[in-house]
């Protein structure tokens, strides 16, 4: 498979840097006590979100999970909108109503992330049903972790998409652990994409630590979806470099295993590939990283100087017509 254009590859690199640096920063802010809530970091899995998002058109959609920062940034939610939401500010992408686990922005084709494992799968199929009925030609990518495959919602949602040939791509990011539970303890399958056969749809397992490989597979799946040939189950083998959530000390896995996966980090891997091919230079790559760092500093400034919602604003947005109107 041919590489994407140099511009797209450079953009992929920038997007992965945005996700990585955003999360490193918010983790630090969180540990310093400057940011409320909880965090499920995506660090290490950036190639999955970026590879898939870059195969989508602007008016296509994604729906993420409880670990959604990467999905949202990859599809185009701005760092200002993201940072302000995590700071619980009214300028955030969900005006402070959602927080880390529900980031999204319909203007960029990102549904509010659904933090119930597997809960986004029937919703994604429903959205794809709407696209098909309205003949819009749009596609939705539905992200899920390996744990979601054992939820009933997976079965119901994927089966419906299969029988109606709906334009949806199911992206399973297999990071080997559901919180602390190893994936081989909860399924007999070695390849999770084999589940696809049970629904009569194509399944493919790819290296989720290589953004170009993910992108190629996602392009094939998106094309199938857009052509009316139905859904694909795309399994991306990946690894979260950090714990499941803020309190996770990762005692359930070895430091050797972590080192092996970190050696396959998708970000330096893409940089090396581009430098090798003469598409860019190391200096240019470093400059991108520095630009992203500045962007993130600016987003923190934006978020910290933004107003908080008023306490009684919690009464808004339950219904489209507010009580008393």
């Amino acid at each position: 498979m041919a590489d994407p254009s140099p511009d797209r590859m450079l953009h992929m690199y920038r997007q992965m840097q945005r996700i990585r640096q955003f999360e490193e920063k918010v983790n630090q802010l969180f540990l310093e006590g400057r940011m409320p809530g909880t965090l499920h970091l995506y660090t290490g899995q950036e190639a999955c979100a970026v590879g898939v998002a870059e195969a989508l058109d602007e008016d296509d959609w994604v729906v993420g999970t409880h670990r959604p920062h990467g999905h949202a940034i990859a599809k185009g939610v701005t760092l200002d909108d993201m940072m302000a939401e995590l700071f619980a500010k009214s300028t955030g992408c969900a005006r402070g109503y959602g927080g880390s686990m529900h980031v999204g922005d319909p203007a960029t084709g990102v549904l509010p992330a659904i933090a119930i494992v597997g809960g986004n799968i029937p919703v994604a199929s429903g959205m794809a049903l709407g696209f098909k009925m309205q003949k819009t030609g749009q596609v939705i990518a539905c992200f899920m972790g390996d744990g979601a495959l054992n939820e009933g919602a997976f079965h119901e949602g994927v089966n419906m998409a299969a029988i109606w040939d709906l334009p949806v791509v199911f992206v399973c990011e297999n990071n080997l652990y559901g919180a602390s539970t190893p994936v081989d303890q909860v399924t007999r399958l070695e390849k999770l994409s084999d589940r696809a056969a049970g629904y009569g749809i194509p399944g493919e397992t790819v290296d989720g630590m290589d953004v170009l490989t993910v992108h190629g597979a996602a392009q094939r799946a998106v094309e199938r979806a857009r052509n009316g040939d139905g859904p694909t189950l795309l399994e991306c083998l990946t690894y979260r470099f950090v714990g499941h959530s803020r309190s996770d000390t990762r005692s359930y896995r070895s430091r050797d295993e972590e080192a092996e996966w970190k050696a396959r980090d998708a970000i330096p891997r893409l940089a090396a590939h581009m430098v090798e091919r003469g598409i860019t230079t190391q200096d240019e790559v470093d400059a991108i990283a520095a630009e992203v760092a500045a962007e993130i500093e600016a987003s923190i400034e934006f978020a910290e100087s933004s107003p908080s919602p008023a306490p009684e604003d919690c009464l808004k947005y339950v219904f489209t017509e507010e009580a008393g109107q």
């Binding site: 199929s125 959205m127 949602g157 089966n159």
Partner: peptide, 17 residues
Amino acid sequence: SEAGIAGAAVGAALSGM
């Protein structure tokens, strides 16, 4: 598939149906 039906309705509604 009652969960599927409800979810399909949620998603279809979000898409403008």
